[in-house]
Design a binder for these strands. Structure first.
Lengths: 188, 188
DNA sequence: CGTAAATGTGAACGACATGTCACTATATAG
DNA sequence: CTATATAGTGACATGTCGTTCACATTTACG
């Protein structure tokens, strides 16, 4: 059921997928859906929460695999690529939930999702902060801003890939993304 | 009518605003709306197109005010702040249209909007390319990637501001954003 | 087997949103 | 002042979608 819903939501968006279509794709009767989920929103919520948890777990693990801050970032960019390549249809929903247009589904932000996303931003910010303290990184901006920047940078690359997979592949080498942060555009 | 629709869409999202509510807010009867717009989607489209055109014009102008590439970028970041600060309620819709979740309104991408957005990305990429040729910039990434990066970086800051205006103001000094590109995180 | 619990069904229902249309009011022009 | 165009109205037809519920089918188990 969840995977049928996932594909449809990701393709057409929450409001353009009627329950009966999900039922049909999942090869169940409508009534059965309602045995498992209180309503459409509950189904969507479960779907999103299950997936974002899986992602954030994988991404958090990527930050913990080494002590070197540069490697942590490389692992993050690499892991994000792997996770999403394997779950292409989730990306749209994930981006929709963490980026802009949340009001499209629920009117208010979903507190749970926001909180988990916020926590991840914090733990990534800690990597930058530690790197700055250890003098591995220069303090070119506030660590939290750096965290938001890197997340959005990778999202941007994911988005390019989503739109034109063959023309804009998600980079194999994490440094393709990271050099934008690592190297300065200006000399000195 | 358009400004009534704008406020409502921006607050609740396209699918959560019935036409009669727009009519009420605009102090017209429903029938009158349909004298001016063929349908709801047409109303939305007109709204978005009018605004994105205004923005892209302002942002493109910002890139043309000087010959110095660094100043062009500063003007861009500054102009983006000004434009959106003056039109807060449009940002949500603009981000929703240019970032991720387009399928939330129309099932397919809106070709017009995508095209204009793509053109702007191109002209910003030209700034980076020119800067690299003139040796003002180091070639730390593909110019188009740099363009996408800067646009997404500023969007990220706008988004922070949207969520918590007093806690995360959009930076007065454009270099707060630009240093993330200008200065390298790593030494050398 | 028999029976009870769990799982599954889909026609029917009601709420509600879009878009229409016959009509009125107002403005413009000859 | 009449005629014609334009702007405005809002009750309602039409259709869709989320959700329910009385019933059927399968499974679990003593």
């Amino acid at each position: 059921m969840l995977s049928a819903a996932l594909e449809l939501f990701s393709e057409k968006g929450y409001h353009n997928v009627p329950m009966h279509e999900i039922a049909e794709k999942a090869e169940f009767a409508i009534g059965t859906l309602y045995k498992f989920f209180r309503n459409k929103e509950d189904l969507y919520r479960t779907l999103i929460l299950e997936n974002t948890d899986r992602f954030h777990e994988a991404l958090t693990k990527a930050l913990e695999e080494t002590d070197d801050e540069v490697e942590k970032l490389r692992n993050y960019v690499r892991a994000k690529g792997e996770v999403f390549r394997a779950n292409a249809s989730v990306i749209r929903l994930y981006l929709a939930e963490t980026q802009g247009a949340k009001f499209n589904v629920m009117v208010g932000f979903d507190a749970d999702i926001r909180e988990r996303y916020g926590k991840f931003l914090q733990s990534l910010a800690l990597v930058f902060e530690a790197g700055i303290k250890k003098k591995r990184f220069k303090r070119i901006a506030d660590p939290y801003h750096l965290s938001v920047s890197l997340v959005n940078l990778t999202n941007a690359f994911l988005f390019l890939w989503l739109e034109e997979p063959e023309h804009h592949p998600y980079p194999e080498d994490p440094d393709t993304v990271l050099n934008i942060l690592f190297k300065g555009l200006l000399d000195q």
